[in-house]
Amino acid sequence: MRPHLLAILVALGQTALAPYRIEGDAIPSALGGAAGDPDRGRAIALDPRKGLCTLCHAGLGAGPAGDLGPDLSGVGARLAAGQLRLRLVDGRALNPGTLMPSYYRAAGAERVGAAWVDRPVLDADEIEDVIAFLLTLRPEAPR
């Protein structure tokens, strides 16, 4: 079963990207292998040209944020690393109608601008960095 599964993922056009395996609502294993760095992840998430996260999400600890997605305050306590990974890699696997971009998926996009053709929004290491950052977002301890 497993090799078959991999074949499907490759056939879906993910050849250039690290293969991954979805279990339930999560991708349990890290994409690259290396653990993410939360500081780098924070910089990526807050950069409106890179992670784009603040265009839609409040709660990331930075200035003017949009309100197209849920507030992410404390998200590190609500979701485990594997769940965060699937939501970043391809949240459309969970909700096909979601506005949230699939950050690690180049297949299926049409009329992509020349600078972005055949590239995922973030690479595997960057996804792991953002996950490491999201895991640091915890509700304030009660005083």
């Binding site: 839609c56 309100d67 197209l68 459309r92 506005l99 971009p101 699939s102 180049a106 972005w116």
Partner: peptide
């Protein structure tokens, strides 16, 4: 109504479904 570009947004996704909300500060 068609999702386009690397981010696979459609015009309708912003202007029909989410007008009045904010993209960053806008």
């Amino acid at each position: 109504e068609r999702p386009l570009g690397q981010l696979r947004f459609s015009c309708a996704g912003c202007h029909d479904a989410n007008w009045g909300r904010h993209l960053g500060a806008a």
